[in-house]
Amino acid sequence: MKNSKIDAAPTREFIINTITKDIRIQAAIFDLIDNSIKAAEFITHYNKLDKFFVSLEFDNSQFQISDNCGGISRKKVLGGALKIGSSLDYKSGHGIGLKRAFLKFGKIITITSNRSDYSCKMIIDVDKWGMKNDWDLYVTKVEYNENIFQGLTINIRNLYNEISRKFSDFKFKKELIEEISMKYRYKLQCGFKIIVNKKYIEPSFIQGDKVAESPYKVIDGMNIKVILYNHVITKENGWDIVINGRVILHRDKSEKTLWSKKLIKSHYSYIRFVGEVLNE
């Protein structure tokens, strides 16, 4: 009996939806900001960041993020930095979370990397990308522009309807700025600049009475410091977990931080308590 071949390959839509469905819009933006910060840290060897910035501009028609954090090297561009599902660890920043983030927003994606040693441009048309199971990206080498910063620019047009609505919503913009201010407070304190629609973001630290602060101590190979606050201004209480200068958990009261009513002593109020754990 002759066997028949059936095309059981997943559709383009399924692949793209699977990549992006579980990520919040804010988290996708944070992925892109993290890429820029990591690239700047790689250049400076985790020293001063005051010469570096990332700028976000968006409205209901487009989203653009640009930085002066060195761009993507030729080795990483051609080596798979933009490959879907790449298992490579791009310690120099650009490439980590990049695909998932920009695919979340829209259908026409233009990526431009400006470097003195290698400058390039890529255009992704999501409606055509993956046709006939062709997932290759085509890179065009361009002239280095010495009149602008060395860095990466990602421009996204033909936004999805949900994204377009969010990017034109005042409440979304306000909450995004507040979250960036809180999440990246230690990076902003180090001088790294984050600009949203031409507004420079200021760091937002815990405002309350500092009642205890431990010195740094190595625990299981991690450099840990704990700070306790009382009478905080905001009504939210819980734990803030900061890893490498980024707030990973904010006002957490879950099992992740062992917050439990069983541990709360009577006659003590934890309503305006915040604990901060720094892992450097």
Rank of each mutant, 00 (worst) to 15 (best):
K5T: 06
W135K: 12
A27R: 11
V277M: 10
G85K: 06
L49N: 06
G275C: 03
K107A: 04
R24D: 09
R251H: 14
R185A: 12
L103V: 01
L278P: 03
F149M: 08
Q189R: 02
L258N: 11
D169A: 05
T140W: 03
P215N: 13
L49E: 07
C190F: 09
M182I: 10
S113I: 08
T18H: 06
S164W: 02
D117K: 10
I65E: 08
I6T: 03
Y200N: 14
T257P: 02
D134N: 15
S266W: 04
D7W: 00
V232D: 06
E162T: 04
E143P: 07
I124E: 00
I37F: 13
N237L: 05
I248H: 03
L98Y: 02
I224Y: 01
F105P: 00
K5F: 00
F192N: 08
T112R: 13
I72V: 13
K121N: 04
D89H: 11
A8N: 10
G97T: 13
I19A: 00
F273L: 06
I84D: 10
I264T: 11
K235Y: 14
V139H: 07
G238Q: 07
K83T: 15
S164M: 05
I206L: 07
C69L: 03
K83I: 11
F58M: 11
E175H: 10
I111L: 13
G151F: 14
I194N: 01
R100A: 09
Q64K: 12
Y144L: 04
S55T: 09
K217V: 09
K107Q: 14
S260N: 13
D7H: 02
K225D: 04
R185L: 05
Y138E: 03
D31Y: 09
E175C: 07
E146K: 15
I109G: 00
K128L: 13
L278F: 06
A28C: 12
K141Q: 15
L258T: 10
F42L: 12
H250T: 08
